[in-house]
Amino acid sequence: MAEVKLAVRTGLGREQPLAEEWPGFSMREITGLSVWWLSVARKDRDGLDKACTRHLGTALPPERRFVETDKGMRVLWAGDRQWFVIGDGAHIPAAIARLAAVTDQSDGWVAMHVSGERTRAVMERLCLVDLDPATFPTGTVARTPIEGMHALIASDDAEAAACTILFQRSSARSFVDHFRHAADSACGRD
């Protein structure tokens, strides 16, 4: 049997990705991403670096940094000898899986893109780290909480204050609610 096709919902539990706008701020849920967690033993770190260069098109980024490959994948530092590889659904090449522990996290995280001239004003109501371009330039990534919930903030364009934010699926609605309140306050509502 098993002819039933299982429908898909976004990380926020919606049928269509969330997209909301304020004067000077917008937030947009990104769907269809694959998120893989990589963790490597000390002895295999260099080997993994080479494998990533060969198979993903980039070496592993250092602490607090992320890199984009020309295939549109992103490798983000995520902790002690840990990275997230974010792509559009591709799997991790076997050569990499031989050297590192690779675990699918695509459904555990929700991804959101925020941008607009009021983004910094919104973020300072939520985030404890300094997102000023001087201290958080483009290509920086930080794991830090927002209102008590895990988050990962990546600076896509520091001058324009455009960021990609990853947060946990189960508390995603609470997460987004806090953003709404912060945006209401920072931007006003039409």
């Binding site: 602490e63 002690d80 930080a142 794991r143 909480p145």
Partner: peptide, 10 residues
């Protein structure tokens, strides 16, 4: 040592 200086609440 990995993330830099952070608030103790983290």
């Amino acid at each position: 040592p990995l993330c830099g200086e952070r608030d103790h609440s983290e």
